[in-house]
């Protein structure tokens, strides 16, 4: 399939084209960035919602329930579930679909499973680009379920507009709740499995933790109790999810974050591009390898050499450009 056909298919809403593109993205095929570059202007419309929390806290079940509620409200939904890849074999068992069977044949729901393929941080390396493809495909809401996260898998915050953090009763005390990391990134807290003993107390602990934050903010994360098995509390959760994006929009934060993200992405791309260009040029040269030997022997230092190589590179291209 050519890049143009892929792009056309994705924009026409063909599931196979989207599925194919997602594989190219995951496999880091050279066609993926070409397609994404054509699709870029069709993105930026979806509300991206991250769902994160410890393993077994009911993320997949909650995602299914959120989807059900969104479908009731006539929203189309894309779901990306990230599961860990084995550090030993590189393989993965992607089992999040098991709990999403209810939407298995709904044409307005697209579910895709991703292995982390060695990437840490709660997402796969290509999750952001996968979300972009689903966005271009035209889904209203994209739910991103992270791997079972602990205290530092916080990458989802760079990707999602709204982050839902799930927890369950009986997990740790009130000091766990005040620690940095995952507890800090929540726009909405969910204490799932609300039928279990201690759910109310867990909610109260999280609320108490939130009250220790006395900074003035346009949004104070609500703490909700849900039972994802029965769907209890899910309608309120979906209300809060849409209230949150409205709040971001009204406060100007959405635009601000959008600019920040565009800047970060552009700078990362340029950094990669420049580094790649520079290294491709240098690595073939004998004097480059000689410099490395001199640094290893302490005849030169890497600070000076790096400065000189980069400046020479930039100057040379400035002269070429005339």
């Amino acid at each position: 399939m050519s890049v143009d056909e892929l792009v056309e298919g994705v924009l026409a809403g063909k599931r196979r084209s989207l599925a194919r593109l997602l594989s190219l993205i995951e496999d880091e095929d050279v066609r993926a960035p070409k397609a994404l570059s054509q699709l870029y202007r069709h993105t930026g419309r979806a509300h991206i919602v991250g769902v994160t929390g410890p393993p077994g806290s009911g993320k997949s079940t909650l995602v299914t329930q959120i989807t059900k509620e969104l479908r009731r409200r006539k929203k189309t939904v894309g779901i990306i579930c990230v599961d860990p890849s084995s550090p030993f074999s590189g393989g993965a068992l992607l089992g999040d679909r098991i709990r999403m069977q209810e939407h298995a044949l709904d044409d307005d729901v697209y579910v895709r499973s991703m292995g982390t393929r060695g990437h840490l941080g709660g997402l796969a390396r290509s999750t952001a680009e996968a979300v972009r493809a689903v966005d271009a495909f035209g889904k209203d809401v994209i739910l991103v379920e992270t791997v079972g996260a602990g205290q530092s898998e916080v990458e989802i915050i760079e990707l999602a507009h709204t982050v839902v953090v799930t927890d369950v009763p009986g997990s740790g005390d009130d000091i766990q709740a005040i620690k940095a990391g995952i507890m800090e990134i929540a726009d909405i807290f969910v204490v799932n499995k609300s039928d279990l003993e201690g759910a109310e107390r867990k909610g109260a602990e999280i609320n108490a933790m939130l009250e220790t934050d006395i900074r003035e903010k346009p949004w104070r994360p609500p703490v909700l109790l849900t039972n994802a098995r029965t769907g209890e509390g899910v309608a309120e959760l979906v209300d809060k999810i849409s209230e949150h994006i409205s709040c971001l929009r009204d406060s100007g934060l959405l635009e601000e974050r959008g600019l920040q993200r565009s800047r970060d992405e552009l700078e990362q791309m340029m950094e990669y591009k420049l580094t790649h260009q520079l290294l491709t040029e240098l690595r073939g040269r004998p004097e480059y390898n000689e410099a490395i030997v001199r640094i290893a022997k302490r005849n030169e230092d890497p600070y000076t050499v790096a400065e000189k190589l980069v400046m020479d590179f930039l100057l040379k291209y400035r002269e070429d450009a005339g």
């Binding site: 050279v30 070409k34 390396r125 680009e129 760079e158 990362q268 591009k273 420049l274 790649h276 070429d320």
Partner: peptide, 21 residues
């Protein structure tokens, strides 16, 4: 001129290109 061939623009959003030649 630096040629910005789009096929070599593929990047991961994170991760250093140097550590993964």
């Amino acid at each position: 001129m630096v040629t910005l061939a789009i096929e070599s623009l593929y990047i991961s959003t994170r991760g250093s290109p140097v550590s993964n030649p």
